[in-house]
Amino acid sequence: MTRDITVGQFLPGQSLLHRLDPRTKIVLTLVFIIQVFVSKSALSLCFLIVLLGVLIACSHVPAKKVFRAVRPMIPVIIFTALINIFYVSGNPVFHYSFIRITDQGLFIGFTLFVRLTALIAGCSLITYTTSLNQLAAGLEQLLAPLKRFHFPVNELSMTLSITLRFLPTIAEELDRIIDAQKARGADLSSANLYKKVHAYFPIILPLFMSAFRRAFELTNAIECRCYQGGIGRTKMNVLRLSRLDYQAIVFFCVAFGLSIAFNLYFPTFF
């Protein structure tokens, strides 16, 4: 049941992508997504898609899994693309009463479809190959410069890792409470919305009580260990860029440079 909803979707492995530093992956993914969205040239976009395909192959993540991550978003993507098809002005290719489809609209709709799909596939690839803890650590380090502007980076990452740590625990707890109330005859299958909300009350309330209890216990435990925010804290596992990271960065610089060049020299879509 709820236990099936694993937090994140990390697939442990030893592929090139798994071994990269999370910071490298976060930054490169971001740059990749930006490129996918600003590319105006068909050649460049095709190139980026091929690049994504190569990355998926390097990651040892089954293509099926990536597709499964994209699939739930497909209706949204198609909807967004359709809206663009109908609303972008240009040379009409189809006209029927108020429906007007233009060549420009078709392009934009289609490329938007490709772009959004690539966006989700790219994001899923990083979450498949990076554990959530690693992602959090990478994000913390990337945001570290913001400390200068009194942005609470350590606190933020602490909150994030505590949340990640406790989500499965709370999911388990939820399972248990649901079972306990079902054992007392709770009927959760009612079709009537009012009744349904009512039926969930005896489940949500104990869940909150237990979440608060855990929070208080954790607060005490943290205070007993003299936690005072990020001041002077060091890490057990310090992130270090390896040779592989530098190689990846060089590779992507070349790739992104090519993509920019395509945009500059073959700016149109055909």
Binding site: E173, I177, A180, A183, P206
Partner: peptide, 21 residues
């Protein structure tokens, strides 16, 4: 199945955590 649950009473571990009223 719900009617079975009234005949077979189940008390889970740490049942006090299911109190809500």
């Amino acid at each position: 199945i719900r009617s079975i649950r009234f005949q077979i009473g189940l008390v889970f571990q740490y049942p006090e955590t299911q109190i809500f009223a």
